[in-house]
Amino acid sequence: MTKLRMISVMCSIVALSVGLAHEVRAADAAVPAGATPAITTLDNLQAAYQGESNAKARYEAFAVKADEEGYKSVAALFRAAAHSEGIHANKHGAALKELGVASQATVEKPVVKSTQDNLEAALGGETAEKTSMYPAFIKQAEADKNLGAARSFKGAMASEAGHVLLFKEALGNLNEWKAAGQEFIVCQICGYTAKNTATLQKCPVCAAPRLKFDIFK
């Protein structure tokens, strides 16, 4: 009797997990009936994919410029941020795929100025994404019950908050950031970006372990 009860409990747990997992995929794939909401989330995903893809290209160009101007640590930060934006673009692309839409982006040639200007431009873009763009996208995706898109937007927003802090710090200490030495980690799973410290053993956003971090220096 006890054995039967234990087997029954085990089956329930597996069934619950499989059921929840299936529900997530089903909810992600569902295009809500009705007029505009589903289309809006789709638009938002495409806009976010476009934005992240361009940000990746822009930061890669900024990193080259920072290297040219001798800002080694700033260059490392831009490379880390570019990698992070690439991960976000992939996440948004996967969410688009779930909706049956291929991801496409028109990557424009970045406008590259001085490193200080580039940092200010990056800070402005990230702040806008963090404070207005992604919160609106998340709200819409949740209203559409598109959980996959909402998660993709939330992950990107959490990372952009980290980018804002790092760009602010670099701008405030531009001379000290000339020397190499600053190291940054980027979580391979969610794109979370932070300074590389020994105490950071796990990604605070997605809980991935340190082995899943890419290091930029």
Binding site: M6, V9, M10, I13, V14, L16, S17, V18, L20, A21, V24, R25, A94, R151, I189, C190, C206, A207, A208
Partner: peptide
């Protein structure tokens, strides 16, 4: 305890698998 001990790895495996696709 058996149910909790089994629920912990099963739920986390499914959760992280979905997160990492």
């Amino acid at each position: 305890l058996v149910s909790l001990l089994l629920a912990h790895p099963i739920l986390l495996t499914f959760g992280h698998a979905l997160q990492a696709d």
